[in-house]
Amino acid sequence: MSAVTQSILYLDGVSVAFDGFKALRSLSLTLQPGEMRAIIGPNGAGKTTMMDVITGKTKADEGDVLFDKGTIDLSRYDEAAIAELGIGRKFQKPTVFESHTVADNVLLALKGDRSPFSALFGARNRITGEIIDRYLAIVRLLDHRTRLAGALSHGQKQWLEIAMLLAQDPKLLLIDEPVAGMTDAETDVTAELLKDIARDHSVVVVEHDMGFVRALGCRVTCLHEGSVLAEGSIDAVAGNERVIEVYLGR
């Protein structure tokens, strides 16, 4: 079982069905600590459902979902507990708190006690601007710290969400379509950003943009109809006959 004990994330035989529709069919995936993995696949391949299963939004009908060297069975926890365990998630559609300022968004995300009392009287009220600024600097949003998040551009919202993800300081980051709707220049910046992050975090990136995936330079898994179709380097996967047939097109 060395595959389990060495992994940060271990999915084995995971299946999920919605009203008879099988979103995941016996999906298996293993991620090493510190590894970055890109997930590609056509619509309905189960990418988002896989993220839902990992983060506790959806419960797997069967199969193992293990975290942190196989020591934690994620199926026994809910969303908040899984976030506390150290799994951060960025959604496909940027979901920042639009009526809060950029700085407050990061403040809410910062690692630490998240009980009501901490928020009311405790540590969370004593977080200084410098700590927040550190994260905003990473995503280059320092100039926008007092703006309402709702007023940011689409790309900026994506970055703010990444900043929030970093502020959580998770062991594993799940990033769903980070460059959707971004300009080419923004996409390049994001790729650099993710590579930086991957130095000291494990990262799973779901993305359709093959240029971006190539820029990440990591192992690629292609999902199709709820299970793994191909896995390997970007060139190996992109050259796979089946992948070309169902996803990339000729």
Partner: peptide, 26 residues
């Protein structure tokens, strides 16, 4: 207080707040 900010966060995006690790129900 920050608690008020958490409340507004829950109002605007309950499940997002939960994914940040907040026990929304508490």
């Amino acid at each position: 207080s920050t608690y008020g900010k958490v409340l507004v966060a829950i109002r605007d995006g309950e499940s997002r707040t939960r994914f940040l690790g907040y026990r929304v129900e508490h």
